[in-house]
Write a protein that binds this DNA or RNA. Structure first.
Lengths: 236, 236
DNA sequence: TCAGCAAAATAACTCAGACATAATAGGCCA
DNA sequence: TGGCCTATTATGTCTGAGTTATTTTGCTGA
């Protein structure tokens, strides 16, 4: 009937997805209690097994908490793993809170310049080759093309690899994906205020030269450009 | 017998914990396949239900992946949610990779100065009062005392609250907790190279004055001090 | 009236066994 | 050799029963 589901998620995954979206979208608020397993599961038309596994997934991401007798309820928002890839994706399926989007952009503006700085210090030839290659593809294809945007992401991934910090890499990867949801969401129907390629090249040159300060500065500049593409009101 | 478990984890939680620790400690390597559910569950002396729910938890954190016929296997490390609070805690139960610890310190040295900077711009009186109060407790109790260290954490939490960035806050909270595991792990049996309180006061004064650059600088200084307490070899 | 304790109620939790589904492996045929 | 088709197998799903832990209720006694 209403199978707006994606490829082939098993039932528990699909239910976890659905309830997860309901939570992050605010349809279910912190403190809200789920009906008992039997009622809730048969309300969804699934078995208790599948329902329970879905709840386990949500609990693993800090979205719900279940205790005997007390029942299962949505946890306080500060307990949520907001940067979990799934939670992030679910958040951007609905219409995410503008303030949260700002938070993510801000977080990226903290992470990526630092990554560029580290990359300038620790890059090796392979990293530089990857960046150069991605840059060439970007120039050849342009950012209007989807492959061109893939090249853009390759460029950023190469920088993260060069930064040599695993924790930073997984974090930036999640945040970067979320931010790209946003830009895709807005369909980038108008031209960018300025060609972004020169800024990318500046970042690359800074890293190539091993100039940490220059790389950081160039990356900051690049992100400001991306931010200008959004119509988010500037924060203080 | 071997009940090093915390409060009252249900079976599935306990098993998820145990297997999770085995994975992050490298006892089970990426690509390793788990035996079939029936064998694995009865090897652990539990039912298939509980075993499956444990696997669901691990899958939600990106540590394992299971597909029909192919079986359940440990995923590649770059897929792991390294910053998930549980994964972080499990990592620090074993003897974590020194490089990863360095990564976390480095990540904190990226996040917290930025948080201090934002806090200097956005703090209100309540935030300032919280910081001041925490600072007073720290002075009164000292960092040798456990309550004194709790005050230290309150200080940092107040800064994060003042920074007004939810994503930054949850992230810093996880990383900060992990870093504190490390320092507790080392039992801080020797005196700090310098009294950390003056540095804390400098951070506070920067935020109080609304001087973003000063707050950032002071926080960076503070973290360098904490880093010096560890015996990690300095990176380039 | 209230503090403390015991019993009942209720929800999640665990177990066992069966069947369904899907992806792989291997054989079969052209 | 190449592609298709079947058999295998592990995960996925369902059902129903029984267990456990926590909250709530209600009782008792001070």
């Amino acid at each position: 009937m209403d199978d707006a589901r994606s490829a082939s998620p098993r039932i528990h995954g699909a239910i976890a997805h659905d309830i997860g979206v309901e939570i992050v979208c605010g349809l279910r608020k912190p403190g809200d209690v789920f009906g008992g397993e039997i009622e809730a599961s048969e309300a969804l038309g699934i078995s208790r097994t599948a329902y329970r596994e879905a709840i386990r997934i949500l609990a693993a991401k800090g979205l719900v908490e279940s205790r005997p007798k007390a029942g299962t309820r949505v946890t306080a928002r500060h307990r949520w793993n907001l940067l979990d890839p799934d939670v992030l994706a679910w958040t951007f399926e609905g219409e995410p809170n503008p303030e949260f989007i700002q938070d993510l952009f801000e977080l990226r503006s903290v992470i990526e310049p630092a990554a560029a700085e580290f990359a300038a210090r620790r890059r090796n030839q392979v990293h530089l080759d990857d960046m150069r290659s991605a840059l060439d593809d970007m120039e050849r294809l342009g950012l209007a093309d989807s492959e061109g945007r893939a090249a853009d992401q390759r460029f950023h991934r190469a920088i993260l690899a060069a930064a040599g910090n695993e924790a930073l890499a997984v974090l930036a990867s999640s945040v970067g994906a979320a931010v790209s949801w946003t830009t895709k969401y807005k369909q980038r129907n108008r031209a960018l205020p300025r060609d972004p390629l020169p800024d990318h090249v500046l970042v690359y040159e800074g890293i190539l030269a091993g100039d940490a300060a220059a790389a950081r500065q160039a990356m900051t500049q690049l992100l400001h450009l991306a931010l200008a593409d959004m119509d988010l009101p500037p924060r203080m």
